[in-house]
Design a protein around this nucleic acid. Structure first.
Lengths: 208, 208
DNA sequence: GTCTATAGGTGGATAGAC
DNA sequence: GTCTATCCACCTATAGAC
């Protein structure tokens, strides 16, 4: 009875396997055959669902990174105070990173890949809205007198969002430092670090 | 009269070109021919100076990333207060990133590449010392009563070091956000952001 | 130390059967 | 929609002349 089958198990399997491999090895370091093997599908089949490797990569980005800023922005209750709203954004950031562990790596790879030349229009537009939203929250807090006025809102927004991302990216190093043990048997507590980021950020921002 | 010619202009040119290309396109995305062309040397000559592409990559990491933590640690005056020492580390971080613009990208690529499995012994050992040093500074400030005691020193060290790195990596996005202009005609002011990081971090840390 | 030539392998992508 | 077979471009690495 479905009018058009818009989703496909095979397509989803390809996307999931590609996201994992692109995150771990990068776009250039991942082969079509790798993706086919990881997805359990014939490599040639990938070209039935996607134009080429580059289009598959773009689809992965659109699927994961594209939605990321919106998920953070959605976490904000319009009636919340700036303090509460910032905490909500950071907690949501942690939730998303826990649910999609490859996301932080995809984000930094994309930033590193499209550094100088052309920042992807996709990620550029979304990230811009996210940063603008967080900047707006900080500015509102300054207007209401609860945040100190001698911090530049754009800079503070970067400081706010950078910490969790960096923590998740550098988790192998953190494991060595925190547990004295590089093996992943004891996973990092992302939610606990998120609470640290909240108190650290609000501590830096609040007027005294 | 030199006993052994330990340096070589050609070798240095290869290393410099490789560092630039590895940072911009990643290891897998960079070919030996690219490096040869950028360095102005015959591609086959690269195999005279380095065993293979992987060894060249390791040499680039050792040259740039390996020295990075030491350069930050060296910036600390033993007689400085924890506040002064933290500020010195962050300022040095900015200086190094300005002098070696490809360094932030190399660092995040290396982190992303060796995520789960084997963190490079090289970068692992050095990064560990850097993080341990910064953690020690924060702990000393807490002991002296100038830093609040309800922050976890390891977490605070991550927060401290992550901000500038993230800023330099995401500078294309920052340009869009700050200047409303993705073109690199107006470069980012890394030193100004470093001063923000210092006041943000010390604001978060100081006891009240 | 530097170059030419090339071997040997792999990856992206397509044609076409089923 | 899925699979087999394969083409072609390109890349790493080496052999060997100079």
């Amino acid at each position: 009875m479905e009018p058009v089958e818009t989703t496909s198990q095979t397509r989803d399997a390809i996307l999931a396997a590609a996201a994992e491999l692109f995150a771990v090895r990068g776009q250039a370091g991942t082969t079509i055959k790798d993706i086919g093997r990881a997805a359990g599908v014939n490599p040639a089949l990938i070209y039935y669902y996607f134009d080429d490797k580059s289009a598959l990569y773009d689809a992965v980005l659109a699927e994961l990174i594209g939605r990321f800023p919106d998920r953070l922005i959605e976490s904000i209750d319009p009636s919340a105070t700036p303090r509460e709203a910032l905490a909500a954004v950071i907690r949501r950031q942690a939730q998303v990173f826990i649910a999609e562990p490859q996301l932080p790596r995809l984000i930094v790879r994309e930033l590193a890949d499209h550094f100088g030349d052309r920042a992807t229009p996709l990620i550029g537009e979304h990230a811009r809205r996210l940063l603008a939203t967080v900047t707006g929250l900080i500015r509102r807090g300054q207007d209401e007198g609860i945040f100190r006025r001698d911090v530049e809102p754009h800079h503070a927004a970067i400081s706010c969002l950078s910490q969790l991302n960096w923590y998740c990216i550098s988790s192998p190093l953190m494991r060595i430092l925190l547990h004295n043990d590089p093996s992943p048997d004891k996973p990092l507590d992302v939610e606990r670090f998120a609470e640290h980021v909240i108190s650290f950020t609000l501590g830096a921002l609040e007027a005294r």
